[in-house]
Amino acid sequence: MAKATIEIISALEKTAKKLEAGASYQWGHMGACNCGNLAQELTKLSKGEIHRYAMQRHGDWAEQILEFCPTSGYPMDLMISKMLDFGFSLTDLQKLETLSDHEILNRMPKDRRDKINKNAKEDVIYYMKTWALKLRDEWVEAHPEIDLEKDLAAIKKEEIIF
């Protein structure tokens, strides 16, 4: 699982907030699905650019993650590399696409967890918020002397040049 860093917490929270505010969501669209929306936040690429890069190879996010090769030169692999550089793992991305990480699911009430749907926008938002909260708790426990809210507020939007 991704380490609890201010940058990862911020990325998850910003992605969830954008989805809540009406950002495009379509599970079958490589640029507007679960990973696609997170990729938009991390890379500053548009959903169309992400989708176009993904269509240069076959498969959905899960399949492309399985075939990930950091030296392939494919734009999708370069984008996945940027997400990994940010601190996410391939497993994080696979489980985000299917909303299946048991550490995150176990933080949800059983009745909500049992009904989670990998292609429902509301469930993606809830999953990302739960994940961010889990990481917040871990971060605060590891850094009790630091004000997390102050540090999150100080994060500047840095453009990642792709």
Results as ranks from 00 to 15, higher is better:
E97P: 08
V124L: 14
E145N: 07
E122N: 10
R113N: 06
D147I: 08
A54W: 03
S89K: 07
A153K: 13
G59R: 03
A132W: 02
A153G: 12
E141T: 09
D123W: 03
Q56Y: 07
A62I: 08
R112V: 15
K95I: 05
K121S: 10
E141N: 09
M83I: 12
A54Y: 05
M79D: 01
I116A: 03
M83P: 04
I80F: 04
Y53I: 04
D151W: 14
E67F: 05
I125R: 00
L135M: 06
K118D: 14
K115F: 10
Q64E: 06
M83R: 04
I104L: 05
E97C: 06
Y127I: 01
I65E: 00
K110R: 14
M83G: 04
D151M: 15
L99T: 01
H51V: 09
K121D: 11
E122H: 04
K82E: 15
S89H: 07
D114H: 06
E149F: 11
D114A: 09
D85I: 08
V140D: 03
P109C: 07
Y53K: 07
H143K: 02
T98N: 11
S81M: 13
N106T: 05
Y127L: 04
V140G: 06
H143N: 13
T130L: 05
R136G: 03
I146V: 14
P144F: 00
H58Y: 11
R113Y: 08
P70Q: 14
H51W: 13
K95S: 07
L93N: 00
T91V: 15
E122C: 08
E67Q: 11
K129Y: 05
H102Y: 00
M128Y: 02
A132L: 06
K82H: 14
D114I: 01
F88M: 14
Y53V: 00
P109D: 12
M79K: 02
K82W: 08
D85P: 03
V140W: 00
R136S: 02
A153S: 15
G87M: 09
A132K: 04
S100D: 12
M79R: 00
L99M: 10
P70G: 15
Q94R: 11
L152I: 04
E122D: 14
D92N: 12
L78K: 09
G73K: 11
I125E: 02
I146A: 08
L105G: 02
W61D: 02
D85L: 15
F68L: 07
K121T: 11
V140A: 05
N117Y: 12
E149Q: 15
E97M: 05
A62C: 10
R52V: 12
L96C: 11
I80A: 02
D123T: 03
H102C: 05
C69V: 11
Y74T: 04
V140I: 15
N119F: 09
E67V: 00
E67I: 00
